[in-house]
Design a protein around this nucleic acid. Structure first.
Length: 466
RNA sequence: GCUCCCUUCGUCUAGUGGCCCAGGACACCGCCCUCUCACGGCGGGAACACGAGUUCGAGUCUCGUAGGGAGCACCA
């Protein structure tokens, strides 16, 4: 049988980091086993679902390049089917109408809690067979087995057993005419032929009741795998207040999609000591049964390390589009001097994110130069600085404008003036950037461009003498 | 409260009874390289939550304790 997995987010917000990992694991499991990956939008909560959120999730999935073979399917378009299945269940006596108001249910729950018991429905309408078609409180409840227990072998957590006595008759159709989550997922997963249900472990406790619905429907029960949560740095639930949670926020922060995927695949899963995984390696090596049971913390530092790893090792050309996306966001006109590829090559070993790269590259995209006082005092005020700058001014006006040739120019100045490389490079570096820190001096000069470099040298000479 | 789940360096993890006085990676510290910053190389500190038991032998098996998490909705 073909393996079919699905990612089924509810569109109540952006795709967050935990959702992205779930999606990745679903995707990987289907890919490795030659199966199919389905995307389904669980939008039955009409209050909280928004079109903007749907779009945000689709965009993020696309950016991460987690392509679905089918979908997106929308639960709101399948109402007829849910109604049909629920009616069948009622007709077969496996579900029934109930008419308590929300307040009555609430009172029932409080009474149970007060008595030190687990809050659950008391089954009042279980066998009353009342058909009050226009009662505004009418819901459909599933008749859960009262005896025995549900056992399933979770691919991550192992064997889980929950007594049916712990479960009550859950509502499968709300009084507003929409199905509830626990019912809609089961109907969908059956109809869509899902063989592996991979989701967050906040659903572990829902699984037994869902299995009972599968059984009542005479459907094959799929395999389950419940992923542990991703916590923040402090070990608390990830929240917007303490950390970035949206996948697209990480994009804005300058992370690469495959770096995020690589980080996520290693969060809760490993393959020996391997840290770096290409897409192909992830696909061939990942196995949902190897995923750890314990929750893990999200560590941006390690993500940053991976991000830099990819900045350093990817083909620079392949980074251009994403880099220019950031340049534009920063208000820089792309397409002018210097070429993005050259900037990337010069900076990729010095930054962890594309956002930082843009920050550092700004000195090459405009004539504005701020002079760092310490840098000026230390490297332009010395006795040698004017000579170095004058010599550079002459040689730079003539030479071929390529890093290798520029390197030759620096060496020539050093030889001529009998100075060490440091004495030559630092004044020039300050002249080019106004600071003491930049890529290699030849790259720095190259990226500045000849006209601008000469202007900056003049300015530096003035400063050196002033 | 009840049910279910989890527990190896600060963090992500390796480890499926002897190969472990616990290995790798991130972070941190030191040294080297060096035109600055980085990159890279080398080295360092740093963990089996606790307690019983099983066993010749336990990070690995069992049971307790402690701590953490999730669920108990006409939300997903």
């Amino acid at each position: 049988m073909t393996v079919r997995t699905r990612f089924a987010p509810s569109p109540t917000g952006f795709l967050h980091i935990g959702g992205a990992r779930t999606a990745l694991y679903c995707w990987l499991e289907s890919r490795r086993r030659g199966g199919e990956f389905i995307l389904r939008i669980e939008d039955t909560d009409r209050e909280r679902s928004t079109d903007a959120a749907v779009q945000a999730i689709l965009d993020a999935m696309h950016w991460l390049d987690l392509d679905a073979d089918e979908g997106p399917f929308y639960q709101t378009q399948r109402l007829g089917r849910y109604t049909q299945v629920a009616d069948e269940l009622v007709a077969a006596g496996k579900a029934y109408y109930a008419y308590e108001s929300k307040q009555e249910i609430e009172a029932m729950r409080e009474a149970a809690m007060a008595a030190g018991e687990k809050p659950r429905y008391n089954g009042y309408y279980r066998d009353r067979r009342e058909a009050r078609r226009d009662d505004p409180n009418r819901v459909i409840r599933f008749r859960n087995p009262g005896e025995g227990s549900v056992v399933f072998e979770d691919k991550v957590k192992g064997r889980i057993e929950i007594a049916n006595g712990e479960l009550d008759d859950l509502v499968i159709f709300r009084s507003d005419g929409w199905p509830t989550y626990n019912f809609a997922v089961v109907v969908d997963d059956i109809d869509m032929g899902i063989t592996e249900v991979i989701r967050g472990d906040d659903h572990v406790n829902n699984t037994p009741r869902q299995i009972n619905i599968y059984l009542a429907l005479g459907a094959r029960v799929p395999e389950f795998a419940h992923l542990p949560m991703i916590l923040d740095k402090e070990g608390k639930k990830l929240s917007k207040r303490t950390s970035a949670v949206g996948v697209m926020e990480y994009r804005a922060d300058g992370f690469l999609p495959h770096a995020i995927l690589n980080y996520l695949v290693r969060l809760g899963w490993s393959h020996g000591d391997q840290e770096i995984f290409s897409r192909a390696e992830m696909i061939s090596l990942f196995d949902i049964t190897d995923v750890n049971k314990a929750p893990s913390r999200f560590d941006v530092e390690k993500l940053a390390w991976l991000n830099q790893h990819y900045l350093k090792t990817d083909e620079p050309e392949s980074l251009v589009a994403e880099f220019e996306w950031h340049l534009q966001r920063a208000g820089v006109d792309v397409g002018q001097w210097p070429a993005s590829v050259d900037v990337i090559v010069a900076l990729r070993e010095r930054v962890h994110t594309l956002k930082e790269m843009v920050e550092r590259a700004k000195i090459w995209y405009g004539p504005i130069l701020e002079w760092d006082e310490k840098a000026v005092a230390k490297h332009l005020k010395g006795a040698n600085a004017p000579h170095v700058l004058e010599a550079a001014k002459v040689l730079l006006a003539e030479c071929e404008w390529k890093p290798a040739q520029l390197h030759g120019v620096i060496e020539e100045i050093a030889t001529q003036l009998e100075l060490g490389m440091g004495k030559v490079a630092q004044p020039l570096r300050v002249a080019m950037t106004g600071t003491q820190v930049s890529p290699s001096i030849e790259d720095t000069i190259y990226l500045t461009g000849r006209d601008e470099a000469l202007k900056r040298i003049d300015a530096a000479i003035a400063l050196a003498r002033g």
